[in-house]
Design a protein around this nucleic acid. Structure first.
Lengths: 218, 218
DNA sequence: ACCTGAACACCGTTCAAGT
DNA sequence: ACCTGAACACCGTTCAAGT
């Protein structure tokens, strides 16, 4: 209804192009380098032009989050044991953030309450409820998993990527236990993800009412 | 050694005063309002004066993180079951961030690899190792807990505090499962913390080698 | 409808200068 | 040593104007 007519005029520049350029710029130079003016320059356009495709900078940031989210999550999730669904969700999110480091801080900063993200949440909570979790517990679980994944990437996203290597360097004789913990090399993002996920899933298993504990109730 | 002489001259303005004013400003008006110029105005001083107490803005941010960390964590932790030590650490961190919302994004953003934070990490990992965890597993545990606490606060720290209330509003008939999950009111920060912490601790208990599983090995 | 250019009120940081 | 003021290279966003 309404407004479906096409205007020729100067053509060029769809919202999609703006978003893709924004993600590319943020991934390449870091979020802190993402400015309306630089983005415009990237698109060979005046800064103010962007305001026709995006409400303002916050709107741009929200759109980036939604864009990356849409690209990361292949929905609806394959059915299966809730543990696999949750792990799959976490890994999809992880891969999306790994592919788009420029979006990590935006994920942490923009709540992203969009129809799409709510639909994903609804689906996940429904699957978990069908697995035997009370709805509220299921919501807590999803929040915990999403928070862990985003938190994981934040740790590695400081403008210098100094976290694990720097700890390893500093953990000398003054910090013998840390040195021991890091003796087999720095802690990688993947191993942190697997560990946290394993612990979280095992922990929530203990919160599952006894009659829902069977993996596939045939 | 060296440089312990006092200079009179114009007196005023210690690094401590700068940090306290910075934390106050960030808590009151939000981190995004924390600028060198506004902070200077707050202290009745020229912006450039601040560069005598802090290397630059990133240095200021790092100092804020350390300042809040020092205020939040009462160390060394009371000995006791590792579960209590970990929960105590999480709650101290939580209280510190609750008291200083302006520091939340900085915690997520500045790695904070300082002698103090490393000493805290060392102590925690040592306690966990004494409880039976391999050092590397212990490190993972601390990372997971710290990440969960910071991630929790980030969710509530978007410039508008729209998260839980907004979800509750939006979860209408289109999202029946979410509406059900939120029927008893919005999910509070405290309940999320307790839930995640319980799950994480229970999960890591399952990773504990069998002979270290006794709570107090007398 | 879509794009532009000038303007406004901000930033962080440098540099040379004051006391 | 500590503080200042002007200056530089940036920001996001408004507004009136072009096509």
């Amino acid at each position: 209804m309404g407004r479906s007519r096409v205007q020729g005029k100067h053509a060029g520049l769809t919202r999609e192009q703006v978003l893709e350029a924004a993600v590319r710029l943020a991934d390449r130079d870091g979020v802190e380098a993402l400015s309306m003016r630089k983005l415009a320059r990237e698109l060979d356009v005046e800064a103010m032009t962007l305001y026709h495709h995006v409400q303002n900078k916050q709107g741009l940031e929200d759109a980036i989050v939604e864009h990356v989210l849409a690209e990361s999550l292949g929905w609806p999730p394959e059915s299966g044991a809730w543990q696999e669904v949750v792990a799959g969700y976490a890994h999809d999110l992880h891969r999306g953030l790994a592919r788009h480091p420029g979006a990590v801080l935006l994920f942490a900063t923009r709540p992203a309450i969009t129809p799409r993200s709510l639909a994903i949440l609804e689906t996940l909570v429904r699957l978990l409820r069908e697995a035997g979790f009370p709805a509220r517990t299921a919501l807590h679980l999803v929040y915990a998993v999403a928070g862990a994944v985003v938190g994981l990437h934040l740790g590695y996203a400081g403008d210098q990527n100094r976290e694990p290597a720097a700890v390893a360097d500093l953990a000398g004789e003054d910090l013998p236990v840390l040195a021991d913990a890091l003796a087999d090399g720095p802690v990688t993002m993947e191993s942190r993800l697997d560990f946290t996920l394993t612990a979280l899933i095992a922990g929530f298993e203990t919160l599952l009412p006894a009659d829902g504990r069977r993996l596939s109730p045939r």
